[in-house]
Amino acid sequence: MRSTLLNVSTTRPRARLLAGASLLAATIALAGCSGGGSGGPQDAGTDGAATGGEGVSIVVMGGATDDPFWSTVKRGGEAAAKAVEAAGGTVTFVAMPNYDNFNPDAAKLVANIDAMKPSAAVIPDWAPEAQNDNISAITSKGIPVFLYNTGIDQVDAVGAQAYIGSDDYESGKLAGETFAAQGAKHVACVNTLPGTTNADARCRGVKEGAEPGGAKYTEMALPTSQFGDPSAVAQAIKGAIIEDPTIDGIFTPGQADTNAAASGIDQAGRTGEVRLGGQNFDTESLKRIQDGSQLFAIDQQGFAQGYYGVSAAFQYAAYGITLPQDPLLTGPALIDADNVEEAISGTDLGVR
């Protein structure tokens, strides 16, 4: 299997993605050398750090604190926050309490950000119907918002500056194409966050990637309260593949659910028969890819999302610097047996 970053049929090729990321990094580096406020360039501090960011406050919204993926995103944001703080600004991270009452809690968290009156905000638009009014309330006050992680198609709707993150539909499509290319005949997308933009887009992509390759598609929608619940997800998958033995491919929306899926497949006695792929990954997923019991993982490169989200919001609020392109894509990246060792090295460093 050939592994590549953004190995999908899209108008955003890898070269463009990497060039944009490199240009943004260069922009950040230049700002760190010269500094400047909204009225024009200013001298750098005596230690070489940028100045002119005094009083600029960035608020970053993320997932639950016990979600490993969002811990990686936050680490990326914290790395960028060091430069913000050196320039005189501040970065505040706010998190979902859990995923039990997902849409209302997401909307409430955006409202809380509005009340904080930040200089700029970085927000994942998981549930547009629930969140968009509150996001628009922020942008209508002239406060710049950068959507990240989710919301690639909502930038104009809420008046955001840009989108930073992976393309969820393309992630799913890459997964579906990979299953079909590896001989899967019936692929099920496990959706433990039905009604959310990212999970629904991924499953739609799986369908539209798998079916042209000759695979049948099924969506397995579970209650949102089961997202990250290993026992519930494992039992649901075990039951589904016992009831329908034609299912030979399982895709999950998050790394905890991928681990649960591996358990469910094992409990059904079908390890090695049912191909497993998941969005995001952890060390367990990578070990399974190494030993051949998991086919692949889709990496949206959460560290980069947090890093570029904080950097872009601060550079815009403090200096008026805009992104070199919109959207700025961080994925999808396919992790399989060909490049799993690189991914393991990244997890050891806490950046993947």
Score class of each variant (00 low, 15 high):
Q235G: 06
P253K: 09
G159M: 04
A87K: 05
D257Y: 05
Q315S: 15
D167F: 02
K82V: 14
S285A: 11
Q42C: 06
S3F: 10
Q255C: 08
Y169M: 09
A160T: 10
T4Y: 11
G302F: 09
D291G: 03
I152V: 15
A50M: 12
S71G: 09
Q131S: 02
Y217W: 10
L328W: 05
P128C: 06
A127Y: 14
P223V: 08
D133P: 06
F296D: 04
P253D: 10
R16C: 02
Y307D: 01
I335R: 03
K216E: 11
G77I: 10
L5P: 00
Q325N: 10
K287D: 11
I265H: 06
G209Q: 06
I250L: 01
F303I: 05
A256G: 11
N101G: 04
G209D: 13
T347D: 15
G39L: 12
D43C: 12
D248P: 03
A26G: 14
Q290T: 13
V190L: 03
W126A: 13
A256V: 14
V91T: 12
I335A: 01
G159E: 05
L24K: 08
E284S: 15
E219R: 15
A337F: 02
L174N: 05
D47W: 01
L334E: 02
I321Y: 09
A318G: 08
G264H: 00
D153A: 13
G350T: 05
Q267S: 09
A81L: 03
T347W: 08
K141L: 13
L17S: 09
T11G: 14
E273L: 11
A157E: 15
M116H: 01
D244T: 08
E208M: 00
L174A: 12
G195P: 04
F303V: 04
G277H: 10
E211D: 09
F251P: 07
D299Q: 05
D43P: 09
T192L: 05
I265G: 05
G183S: 04
A130N: 07
Y169H: 11
E129Q: 11
G32L: 07
A215D: 11
L174Y: 00
D67C: 02
G36V: 03
A188S: 15
A49M: 11
A215H: 08
S231A: 11
D100F: 11
D326C: 04
T271V: 14
A44K: 09
T27V: 11
I143F: 00
M220E: 12
V158C: 14
L334S: 02
A240T: 07
K238S: 10
F303E: 04
Q255V: 15
T10E: 02
V190W: 03
V60S: 10
E208G: 01
G76H: 01
T11Q: 13
D348E: 12
S171Q: 12
Q325H: 08
S293M: 02
T65N: 08
I152P: 00
E219G: 07
V158G: 14
A262Y: 07
F296T: 03
T92C: 05
I242V: 11
